[in-house]
Amino acid sequence: MIVFPNCKINLGLHITRKRPDGFHDLETVFYPLPVNDALEIIAHPSLQFASSGIPVPGEAADNLCIRAFHLLQRDFPQVQPVNIHLHKHIPIGAGLGGGSADAAFMLRLLNQKFQLGLSDTVLADYAAQLGSDCPFFIYNRPCYATGRGEIMDPIDLDLSGYSFVLVHPGIHVNTGWAFKQLTPQAPAYALREKIQSPVATWRGLITNDFEAPVFSAYPVLAGIKEQLYAAGALYAAMSGSGSAVVGIFPKNKIADILWDASYRVFTIR
C-alpha cells in the first residue's frame, strides 16, 4: 500500500501565550498543498524502515513513522510488522510539516491495512501524541488551529483559483530558538476573521509573528519574500517558523524568477 503525504503552509501565525506546561498557545490557519512525499508499507516478518530522496536525519527507531507504528500496535495487537519505505521530497525543517504528514499518513495506512475502523477523530487523538500539527494531516483540509496547533476547526477556504510558489533556501531555523525570540501577545482581531478577507488584501493583514526575528537573523528570507512580491505575488509569507517562504499569485500568472541554484522551488499552478 502506498500513499503520498502532502505538505502544509501556515497562513498567519500568532503566538498568544506561554502555557504553564512550557508550551505555547497559538493561532494559525493550516492549508494543504500538493508537494508530496511517498510512503509505502508491505507485510514483513519484522518491522523495517528505509528511506530515499532527501536524507532523513536521526536513527530509524526515532522516525515518526516508526513511532506511529508502535503507538497503534500498543493498543491494537492485530497491527503486525511491516516494511516501511519513505521517499522524502518535502524539505525537512522548512515549516511545511513534512514529518508530521508522514506520521499522520502512517496512522491512516495502518488503520486501513489492518482494518482497525478508527474514525478521523480517534486518529487525530493518536496523531496529537506524535506532534502538535500531526492531527491536521488526518483531516487534511483548511483548518483554523489553536492550542499548541492540535485543536482543529475546519474552515471554508478555497485557494484553488490561485497559483503558489514555495521557496526553500536550505536554511534550518531552530524552532526552540525562534520561540524564545517572541513575546506572546493575543492579536486584536482573530485570524479566523481576517482570513475571510480577499487574498489581495492579505498583505500586511495576515502576519506571522516569527518573521521579524527570523528575518533579522536570516536576511536572505526577507529577500525571498520581496522577490515574490516583485514577481507579482498577491501575498507572500514565511510558513511556520521557517524557512520556506510561500507566494500566492493570480492563477497561472507567475513571472520568471532567477533563484539561486541551491534553492528548492516548487510551483503549484
Rank of each mutant, 00 (worst) to 15 (best):
I2H: 10
F4D: 10
K8D: 09
I9N: 02
I9V: 15
I9K: 02
L11I: 11
G12C: 03
H14G: 09
T16P: 06
R19D: 05
P20D: 11
D21N: 13
H24P: 09
D25T: 00
T28D: 08
T28A: 00
L33A: 02
P34F: 10
N36T: 13
I42V: 12
G58E: 04
G58C: 12
A61D: 15
D62A: 13
A68Q: 03
F69E: 07
Q73G: 00
P81M: 03
V82W: 00
L86E: 00
I90F: 14
I90N: 01
I92D: 06
G97R: 07
D102P: 06
M106W: 02
L107R: 11
L109T: 05
Q112G: 12
L116I: 05
S119K: 03
Y126K: 04
A128E: 00
D133V: 12
F136S: 15
Y139K: 12
N140C: 12
R141L: 15
P142E: 12
P142V: 06
T146N: 09
G147F: 07
R148I: 15
G149P: 09
G149S: 14
I155C: 04
L157C: 02
Y162V: 03
F164Q: 13
V165Y: 02
V165E: 01
L166Q: 08
V167M: 10
G170A: 07
L182G: 02
P187A: 00
P187S: 03
A190E: 09
R192I: 09
K194Q: 15
K194G: 08
I195D: 10
S197I: 13
P198C: 02
R203P: 06
F210N: 00
E211K: 00
P213K: 06
S216L: 14
Y218S: 02
Y218A: 07
I224H: 00
Y229D: 01
L234A: 00
A237N: 08
S241Y: 09
A244R: 03
V245A: 11
V245K: 02
V246A: 09
G247E: 01
P250S: 11
N252G: 03
K253E: 15
D256R: 15
D256Q: 13
L258V: 08
W259R: 08
A261S: 11
Y263F: 15
V265H: 05
F266R: 07
T267Q: 12
T267N: 09
T267F: 10
R269Q: 15
R269C: 06
